[in-house]
Design a protein around this nucleic acid. Structure first.
Lengths: 210, 210
DNA sequence: CGGTGCCTTGAGTAGGTTCAATGTTTGTGG
DNA sequence: CCACAAACATTGAACCTACTCAAGGCACCG
């Protein structure tokens, strides 16, 4: 295991806490720091001039965000849950990128993960039908969320899901209800869920099942 | 002007032609080459298992695509119009990135442009109302397309627009008609358009105007 | 115990999809 | 040069989904 050597940013530094709702950085601010999520969940938010809020992506432990690809941040990032994160100096990140990107591509991968998060939403929003979008989202979520006793912790207001899916909160609520009734997911509590029939959920996500 | 020195990829190499409809690379292929668009227009396409086709992004002259952020391409790229492009070795691209990314961020910018293309679609798909999405798309397009006599060359089938906007072709057609009737855009031919009232188009895009 | 924020449910409506038919443009071969 | 085919664009009508509006329920917090 030489992973540690390659990437300065993986370990070593001490995580800082941020509490639910806190803003890590704002759209338009200069890219001085790279943020690494260690624990919890964050959201990328974009605001149109008239205050229309859109959630562009969610980020999970291991993700690096606010990469200095442009001079200023193109989106704000807020903590969805309480989280632990690390701030790295942009300059050191860039140096480390220069150093490692000839040998391996571990740091380019972190660039990729940021990009992937945005592509993912595009793919989800491109689907027809609110149930298909919701299903696709749950599948993605379940791969990132910590699981215990077979239950995913869904510490995410439905309003956020709605904003991410470009749907109304009511539609999200009804969609979840529908999935429960179809026994495809279980939700013993509002903030816990389990996928009971992954195959059927996939079918829904692909728009095959009604 | 020291731009040329920084980035190996900007000039010098000879462009190769590709004709309308041609595939530059396929989803799943290894990232051996980086593609630079010199002239024309390309589209990123993703296929779901059942053959559901989605257009994820459009690319324009100056864009670098197929960046080696992951081992395999996450989307296919096809020529929308006849185009001229350059293929760079991934290895040399990476070396050049390592060399330049300490001094300036010109190459990181090209990473950013790829990412931006995906974010852009997310922002557009997040809007409510087909007219708003279409308007937002036209605004973006008009900034990229070559203009002559005040007319943008829209060498883009409406079906592609529909796929990009996650709408049916009929809706796109009716939307364009509506914009023409409102005198916000002019379309003397099917493949030419001009924005007559940018301000009103923006309002539509923001969902303010009906 | 009352408040506040979020979730849930219902009813009515508007907007977009689908289906189907027609029109237009482009390219091809006679 | 014309005729025909294929692909794309346009239009209308019926249907249906998801949104809006509005009211009530639940849970957490002081």
């Amino acid at each position: 295991m030489q992973m540690l050597k390659h990437n300065l940013f993986e370990q070593r530094t001490i995580g800082m806490p941020a509490s639910c709702g806190e803003t890590l950085f704002l759209e338009g601010e200069p890219c001085d720091e790279v943020f690494e999520i260690r624990k919890g969940m964050a959201r990328a938010v974009s605001m149109s001039r008239e205050g229309e809020r859109q959630i562009l992506a969610f980020f999970f432990p291991g993700d690096f965000i606010g990469l200095p690809l442009s001079r200023h941040h193109r989106y704000s990032v807020e903590a969805v849950t309480d989280l632990v994160h690390v701030r790295h100096s942009t300059q050191r990140w860039q140096e480390s990128l220069a150093r490692t990107c000839q040998e391996d591509s571990s740091m380019l991968k972190s660039v990729w993960r940021e990009e992937k998060a945005f592509i993912e939403r595009g793919l989800i929003l491109g689907r027809v039908g609110a149930l298909a979008r919701l299903s696709a989202f749950l599948i993605v979520l379940s791969k990132h969320l910590p699981t215990e006793h077979g239950l995913c912790a869904l510490e995410l207001p439905q309003t956020d899901i709605a904003s991410y899916l470009a749907a109304s909160p009511e539609t999200v609520c009804r969609g979840l209800k529908r999935l429960r009734e179809m026994q495809i997911i279980a939700m013993p509590r509002r903030d816990r869920f389990a996928i009971q029939y992954p195959a059927r959920l996939e079918l829904l996500a692909e728009g095959i099942l009604a």
